[in-house]
Amino acid sequence: MKEGKDIDKLFKDGLENPDLPFNDLDWDDLEERLHPKPKRRVIPVVWLAAAAAIAAMLLIVFLLVKPTEGPAGVNPLVKNSGRDKNKANPENNATKVTETHLKPNDPIVNTDPAGLVANKANRNPFVQRPVGKNVLSGTNTPKLVLVDADRANLLADMVYQPALHTEFDPVAFKDQKLIASVATGKPERIKQPVLNKKPRLVLSILAAPDLTSVQKSGMSSLSGGFGVEATYSLTKKLSITTGATYAKKIYDSDFSLYKPNSNYVFKIIPSNIHANCDVIDIPLNVNYKVFGNSRNSISVSTGLSSYLMLKEKYSYSYNGAYQGPQDYEVRGRNQHYLGIANVGVEFQHKINNNLSISAKPFMKIPLTDIGYGNSRLSSTGVAVSVNMNLFGKGN
């Protein structure tokens, strides 16, 4: 039992205080086993040597089998590199190649193909070879080449005779008689083709808020209207516009600027007047485009408007305690034809060939007294519109 306790104590002491030597190589080995590095495949030297040998063989075969003929369509001139047997003259040691063109009727020309064989037997240095047809005369034009007679047959076999293909007959073209006649008199004017141009009509739906006031009153009230206009293009830059707009004309002014056509006399003079009028505005404007590209354009416009007064309601206010008449209403009694001058600048942006939007700052300047109160009524605002081309692609 005592011995057993000693063994237990021995193990206990050994585990609590281990005396193990530290070695870095063991840790490196463990890390390599946990994270092994991929090994590169090394190409054997034998395969490299075999690939190099195959490439060398292919290069040698290509050089040996490479054709020596020139490109097609070119008549090669064969040179004789053989030595002349006559060595008495040192100038004959060098090879001479001469090429002579002969006419078909030249007596030296031999048209018999058997002459090529006879040239070898007679050792005639002149060898005949045809090179094709003459384009203009249609006959064969032979050539004589001064070469070694021993190689006459070899040269005859190497003659290249290209075939000439022409779309037209050159002889027939040559025999044609071309006659040119000189035109006299005044040339006929070329008429321009008549095109059925579609009218360029643009329909606009607009809303036009504005500030309306009586001249010299110093007070403005927010008014506005909405309507429909049509623009017809006379040219690429010039157009005319007309339409109809239902508008509200609301304004305040001093009673001194109110001059009704009435015999009624106010016992107590009102201090101010407030007007609310329903009006049909019919413009007639001329527009001129000062700038334009594929998307945007700027136009200036001027013209006249007619006011058709539908309903006029006037309210009066007093300073003192005494109150007189409070309001007065008039219906359909006043029409002012071409009594308003229009001035505006339109900025238009094209969305596509048939649709565009525009903003048009404008002023309406009275040329005459307006309404029952004979007031000099003016307006300043911005008309925003959507424009639709009614006849296809516009310019």
Rank of each mutant, 00 (worst) to 15 (best):
K2H: 14
K5W: 08
E16A: 15
F22W: 06
E31Y: 14
P36G: 00
K39P: 03
V46I: 11
I54N: 04
L59T: 12
L64M: 13
L77E: 13
K79S: 14
N80M: 10
S81Q: 12
P90T: 12
K96F: 15
D106R: 08
P113I: 00
A118Q: 15
N119Y: 01
P125T: 09
V135M: 11
L136T: 13
L136S: 11
N140C: 11
L144M: 15
A156S: 13
Y160F: 14
Q161F: 15
A163V: 10
L164Q: 11
T166H: 04
I179G: 09
T184E: 12
G185C: 10
K186I: 11
R189A: 15
L206Q: 13
A207W: 06
A230S: 00
Y232F: 14
Y232Q: 07
K236L: 08
I240N: 02
T242H: 00
A247T: 09
K248A: 13
K249S: 15
Y251M: 04
L257K: 07
N263P: 03
V265S: 05
S271P: 01
V279C: 08
I282L: 10
K289S: 12
N296V: 12
T302K: 02
T302Q: 05
M309D: 07
K311A: 13
G324H: 04
Q326L: 15
Y328T: 02
G339V: 04
F347H: 13
P361N: 00
I365A: 13
I365K: 06
V382P: 07
V386M: 14
G392M: 03
